[in-house]
Amino acid sequence: MKIDICCVGKVKESSFREMINEYTKRLSRYANVNIKEVADEKTPDNASSAEEEIIKNKEGARLLNVLKDDSYKIILAIDGKNLSSPELADKIDKIGLSGKSHIQFVIGGSLGLSDDVIKKADMKLSFGRMTFPHQLMRVILLEQIYRSYRIISNEPYHK
């Protein structure tokens, strides 16, 4: 399976980069994982709704350039479906069994995802109603994908 983590912005903190690299390395036994970063836009203080929409659309256009037509696209969204770790593992397994060999997870910028990116989604996934820093969300997502592959392979992993 090929898995892309498509995200807006760069990871600035070395501690987050180390964790991302660690989970990417662990996942290499199970899948070919790539991080696809697109540039973020600066959001001015007190930006209007119209300005925020323009920013989301610019970031969205960059994300659309890395999304592949033949991939199964899972966007991270607060209003998405909440899954347990075993349910996410089952979903990833079923995607592979359905003949798809490429999953792209999409993490938006600080303002979220553009409507055009949302329309491309095959699934909306939520990690709850809380907001997480985008850098931390990459780590959490990678850990859950790794946990999923451990579950799929019937390998132990702490609960």
Rank of each mutant, 00 (worst) to 15 (best):
D122S: 10
I20H: 08
L111T: 05
Y149G: 04
D90W: 10
I75A: 05
L88R: 06
I107C: 05
S101W: 00
R26L: 14
L125S: 08
S153P: 00
E51Y: 05
N21H: 12
D122W: 06
F132N: 03
S85L: 07
N57W: 01
M137D: 03
D79W: 00
N21E: 15
L76M: 11
F16W: 12
M19D: 05
S84F: 11
S84E: 11
M130W: 12
D79H: 13
S71M: 05
A121H: 07
M137R: 01
L88S: 09
K159T: 02
I95S: 07
Y157N: 02
T43L: 13
D69A: 11
K81V: 14
S15F: 15
K119A: 14
N46E: 14
S28I: 06
P86T: 04
I3W: 05
D115W: 01
S28P: 10
S49C: 03
L88W: 08
E41P: 02
E53G: 01
T43W: 01
K42Y: 14
K42D: 08
Q135P: 06
S98K: 12
S98W: 10
L141H: 09
D40F: 08
M1W: 03
G108D: 04
D69N: 13
S28M: 06
I107L: 13
I103C: 09
T43A: 13
K119Q: 12
E22F: 13
S48T: 15
K2N: 15
H102S: 10
I78E: 14
K124V: 04
L67T: 02
E41T: 06
P86V: 02
K100E: 06
R17M: 12
N82R: 12
N57C: 09
I20W: 09
L97N: 12
M123N: 05
N57K: 14
N65T: 12
I145G: 09
I140P: 05
K2M: 12
M19R: 03
V66Q: 03
K36S: 04
Q135K: 08
P86A: 04
K91M: 14
E41A: 01
I20K: 07
V11T: 15
L64A: 01
R138G: 04
S101V: 03
S15K: 10
H102W: 12
L76E: 05
I92G: 04
V106Q: 04
H134A: 03
R147T: 09
S110N: 10
G80D: 05
N32M: 08
K68Q: 13
S153V: 01
I118M: 13
S153Q: 13
K73Q: 10
K73F: 00
L142D: 10
E143F: 10
E13V: 01
I74E: 06
G99K: 09
A31P: 04
A50T: 13
A121D: 07
G96E: 13
K2H: 13
E87C: 03
K2S: 10
G96W: 08
R17E: 15
R138T: 05
K12Y: 10
S153N: 15
D45G: 01
D93I: 00
I95H: 07
D122I: 03
K58G: 00
I54P: 00
T43D: 00
G128K: 04
S101H: 14
D45L: 12
I3Y: 06
A31W: 10
A77H: 14
L136Y: 04
Q135C: 06
